[in-house]
Design a protein around this nucleic acid. Structure first.
Lengths: 339, 339
DNA sequence: CTGAAAGCGCTTACAG
DNA sequence: CTGAAAGCGCTTACAG
């Protein structure tokens, strides 16, 4: 594979590489005569010139590359985040490098190192438990970083979050007002603040209601989440539950839980009402339309890129956080959902 | 953001940059005295040195970056492909840049240009209709390319495919042998060879059986696939279908179709048997376990990376194609599925 | 209106 | 065992 360079064009046009560079970068319209401009463009086209951004990057210290670290790109939520980020990034001339951390702090660190070596202009990350130090080191050297979805306690880095606690609290309130005989909460056992926020919001509503709710916590990143959820539901619901509400704090948990419901012919919302955090196409295959909490993914992506771009051009470690609002999409899986 | 360079280390260690480079790259174990080696490593660590791969790339003409172009990264199938490619690539020291073409030849071309400017060492692409020229130009300059999932007619480029025609034919044969009163095929109206292969395989089996099958074709990349499939099924199935079989040629079509079935309380497989190409988590929420054709995604990713790596190290435009086998996962949605 | 030259951070033959 | 030097393909003050 042989690539042509600015030098080749210069030689063919009988001008200096400087001139070629000026023309190709469309700088200072008046600088170069229209004649040479035309000649240069034509030659560039005929020899099929593509600029070497690597060389440019070395000189300008900008790569126009952005690193994205998610927990797992094959997860619905993150692949949609990635897709939206890709679009927004492209608009500002950035290209995305994507890596999956697998909820592993060591792998997370490796990815940041990799990205840093590739000289990405900035990173958008969904940090994992135990990656506080990694993030802090990046902040210390003023590497432009923005968190998305998640954040870490005590680490002052700009980022995008949603109103986790608030939306969980109001949703819980909705459930508590509907006089269910039993409310079951299926969430994660985790240190991740954004998940704890959701949990605390839920608990707060429960506390002030004076009612009891069965809370169940599963480990984040569990191998066989489905089996785990099934066995939990089996002991809690049995085969003939009545007037019960089920709250899932992620779409993965919801899919696992709904598959149990389907397999056991439990009817929704007659026997069990269901509310879930986050959406997924899978809901469409469930007999009842699922009530879920919808995150503003496109907006999150837009704000994340905007915030990162700002950091790149003018680094100020303010730890500015943007909070967006998730909303409850009320559908048939929640009884009397018009109330 | 201030980064330290090899020069900083050289100065601190009182040696030349050449020496530092040799040590850090662990070349020729004997060359440098153990003493200086240790000193250099220590200094590198204390000043937190990260190599600038951009500079290295400029010199070595290798970036260790791979470009991946899929139709849409938020699509289940492609996000899983991407995830597996990411893992395999990392093992060989490559990092993935990902872009979505949206089935748009112009966007596909733009992405290849972008990747080429970023000097990716090679590309893994799922080409779109109309991108023959783009691919050919890349091949002409001997850019290492591997196709995955799809391929294009008349373009000799190495790639990974599955036995599309064969698996579609044998699956169709299975359906035709089960004396359904009606068999309905829902596929795509497309020029994409891999999809045509599937269609032709299906048609071949139908032809040799002497039976009739209702074939329906939808445009690839349709905006509202769900509505379209619903309206098709409404006219073909009505509300009380009997002894009917439904074949979907992608997971997206299947999800659309199954949501119709769910909403209309049609029972599977009692009234309608269902077979789909490709899988998705969503199947878990459907009351009956879905019979589907499973592609060997991990193996496809492994072979793609291997093939591309080979091309990168020794370019020979042989157009070598690797064909892997998809297999039918037989479950309850197909009546008498033990036969 | 245009060119010569330095320099971005590395690698690597070559010389000693 | 180690260093001086060229060069990868660009950009950009500076000089004319």
């Amino acid at each position: 594979m042989k690539r042509s360079s600015i030098k080749d064009i210069a030689k063919l046009a009988g001008v200096s590489v400087a001139t070629v560079s000026y023309v190709l970068n469309r700088k200072e319209g008046q600088r170069i005569s229209e004649e040479t401009r035309k000649k240069i463009f034509k030659i560039a086209e005929t020899i099929n010139y593509t600029p070497n951004k690597i060389a440019k990057s070395l000189k300008t210290n900008k790569t126009k590359l952005l690193g994205l670290i998610v927990a797992d790109i094959s997860n619905d939520f993150y692949s949609h985040i990635a897709r939206n980020l890709e679009d927004k990034a492209l608009k500002l001339g950035y290209t995305l490098i994507i890596g999956s951390s697998d909820e592993n702090a060591e792998k997370f660190k490796k990815l940041t190192e990799l990205f840093s070596q590739q000289q990405v202009d900035g990173m958008i990350v969904a940090p994992v438990s135990g990656s506080e130090n990694t993030l802090e080191n990046l902040i210390n050297i003023k590497y432009p970083i923005v968190t998305i979805d998640r954040y870490l306690k005590g680490v002052a880095v700009p980022g995008i979050t949603i109103n986790n606690q608030e939306i969980a609290e109001s949703t819980a309130g909705l459930l508590l007002n509907k006089d269910f005989d039993k409310i079951i909460y299926i969430g994660y056992e985790t240190e991740l603040p954004h998940l704890l926020d959701r949990q605390h919001g839920f608990e707060k509503a429960v506390g002030s209601s004076g009612k009891t709710v069965e809370m169940h916590y599963l480990l984040v990143g569990l191998e066989n989440i489905t089996r785990e959820v099934h066995s939990q539901l089996k002991s809690m619901l049995g085969n003939a539950p009545e007037n019960t509400a089920l709250y899932f704090s992620s779409n993965k948990l919801a899919v696992a839980g709904l598959s149990y419901i389907v397999k056991n012919n439990i009817s929704v919302p007659e026997q069990v009402s269901v509310v879930a955090f986050d959406e997924t196409d899978a809901y469409n295959l469930f007999p009842t339309e699922i009530t879920y909490i919808q995150q503003p993914i496109e907006e999150m992506a837009e704000e994340a890129i905007k915030l990162l771009d700002t950091q790149i051009h003018d680094y100020t470690a303010t730890g500015k956080r943007v909070t967006l609002s998730a909303k409850l999409v009320s559908r048939a899986s929640l009884k009397n959902n018009q109330l």
